[in-house]
């Protein structure tokens, strides 16, 4: 439906426009946040892995969460999605207080994540992995499961939806294969497609590009943009600065557990605090390859 896509892509444009007026400083408030986190802290023994004072994620936008290795990005994801317990902190999702909520319930209300170490279920087929993602399945209830006629028609609809997504992610020829026989990059794709089966409002991707070849990367970028066009809010962790630069509407930078910078991609990548965090202080370089980055100057 063309009229639909026009309104939704204008949604994305609106999100972008809204962010254009937002100041580029850590913890800044956004016009329409889907997620607001306050004082989120996680300590491992003496190490404070996450210590985020305040952060907001704009609805309908693509937000990148970047930072050097060990900055606490994955831990922050784990805390927000309920897979790890925060020592302190509160956060709301869609205005609803959700800190301390069980991770499966968070997923049900629309906050779905993927994992840095891919969790494709390798002893199940690709299509079964996809089916598992679908919500509200009658056949998942014990007594209904015994009577296939109660859930057969729903299963058919789930299969159609799965096939559509698998085609989009170029996995449609692997439908009947065990997920364990897929390559590492294909598993990343499968995990992302499976997360979409759960119809997230906010999808949180932990390094979606890791191990994906450059050609596939381009199409993945397309997929992530199309998620935004369909109204899904995207928050992703990534080390590939070109990708971050390409697709994100907003970038949040973490270092040593805290948010040290925020802003549109261009501004953030020129930010001295960010460059220092990545490359060590007093270093003169840019972070993207397009800006002749990461190589020593004067070579």
């Amino acid at each position: 439906m063309p009229s639909d896509s026009v309104t939704s892509s204008s949604l994305a444009a609106k999100a972008k426009e809204a962010l254009a007026t937002v100041d580029a400083r850590p913890g800044v408030s956004k016009p329409d946040p889907i997620l607001i986190a306050d004082h989120v802290t996680r300590r491992f023994g003496g190490l404070t892995a996450v210590n985020v004072e305040h952060v907001e994620i704009q609805r309908g936008a693509i937000t990148a969460l970047i930072g050097p290795n060990g900055a606490g990005k994955t831990t922050f994801f784990n805390l927000i999605t309920g897979f790890d317990d925060a020592d302190e902190g509160k956060w709301t999702f869609n205005g609803r207080q959700v800190s301390g909520m069980a991770p499966y319930r968070l997923a049900r209300i629309g906050m779905v994540r993927t994992f840095q170490l891919t969790k494709a279920l390798s002893r199940m087929t690709v299509i079964d992995n996809m089916r598992l993602g679908a919500k509200h399945q009658t056949g998942e209830r014990f007594f209904a499961a015994i009577f296939p006629f109660l859930w057969n028609s729903q299963e058919k609809k789930i299969d159609q939806k799965s096939m559509g997504l698998l085609e989009r992610f170029n996995l449609h020829e692997k439908v009947a294969d065990f997920a364990g026989s897929l390559s590492g990059g294909q598993r990343k794709l499968l995990e992302m497609a499976r997360a979409l089966m759960a119809e997230p409002e906010l999808i949180m991707l932990d390094e979606p590009m890791a191990g994906v070849n450059p050609a596939l990367k381009q199409s993945l970028l397309g997929h992530i943009k199309s998620m935004r066009e369909e109204g899904t809010t995207v928050l992703f962790v990534e080390h590939d600065m070109d990708m971050v630069h390409d697709i994100s509407d907003w970038v949040i930078v973490m270092a040593q557990g805290s948010v040290i910078a925020e802003g549109p991609p261009d501004a953030v990548m020129k930010d001295q605090a960010v460059i220092d965090a990545y490359l060590g202080a007093h270093h003169d370089a840019q972070l993207t390859e397009s800006g002749q980055a990461l190589t020593e100057d004067g070579s």
Binding site: F83, P103, A107, V112, K119, S122, R194
Partner: peptide
Amino acid sequence: EDENAVVSLGKN
């Protein structure tokens, strides 16, 4: 196989 994968898809 991996209960966290199943949890992440909203299953109890």
